[in-house]
Amino acid sequence: MIDALQFGFMRNALLAGLLVSIACGIIGTLVVANRLVFLAGGIAHAAYGGVGLALFAGFSPFLGAMGFSLVMAVLLAALTVKSKNRADTAVGVLWAVGMALGVILVDLSPGYRADLMSLLFGSILTVSSRELWMMGGTTAVVAATVALKYRDLLVLSFDPEFAATRGVRVARLHTLLLLLVAAGTVVAIHAVGLILVIALFTIPPTLAERSCRSLAGMMAVATAWSALFTLIGLDLSYRLNLTSGATIILVAAFAFFLASVRGAKKRGGI
């Protein structure tokens, strides 16, 4: 792939992959630790409503997805703060409503339908410099927020009830957490698209969790796994002319499978 680096788009793709890996390493760790996988999936899919809205009203789909998923995060936070588990019906409904709204708005939009497949399944090879800046900015905001609120997030993630007795405003922090998930989703959309993003949120952190003694460590290791999967996936998709997002996910899934088999063997299962 070294020779491919002479192309600007390939350099952009690698940089985008790195940014996505950082965002997914940080956010995915919080998603896995707080058992928010279903909620994160809901936010990511509902973001399509924002894409539709953006096309309909004629502004950037990136901004549309960002705005819509942030609103969705606030809504879902309000619905789920009391009981994370019992709200799963509401999450499922909003998940589908967001997507359906997106499809209808795209139907209603006049003329040329931008390459929607790239938003659904990612197109890391066509990331522009402007998009890179937006991704970089969003990732920086996410990383800074998590760094500032690290202890709060740690105490909340480990034991929300105890966190409440230490003065953590649980409802507020839960909302912040979902807003961060929304921001992370929008960054990751570029690499793997909004349908596949959930895999990058879950696989690298789950691989990292087993070996780490701190949330920060887990974020770092998850970022490294994510970067490795993105790199290998990108290379394979370049050589074999495959869709990059899906290739990245299958590489991650393969590693997950290997780790699971190894884990089962270690426990004496096989």
Binding site: L148, A163, R166, S214
Partner: peptide, 24 residues
């Protein structure tokens, strides 16, 4: 929360944590 990546010391330290006041 057994799978959680945290050391014993860091869990006990949570008893000293004071939330809701910026960084700590």
């Amino acid at each position: 929360n057994r799978g959680f990546p945290v050391s014993v010391e860091d869990v006990v330290l949570m008893g000293r944590f004071e939330g809701g006041r910026g960084s700590w």
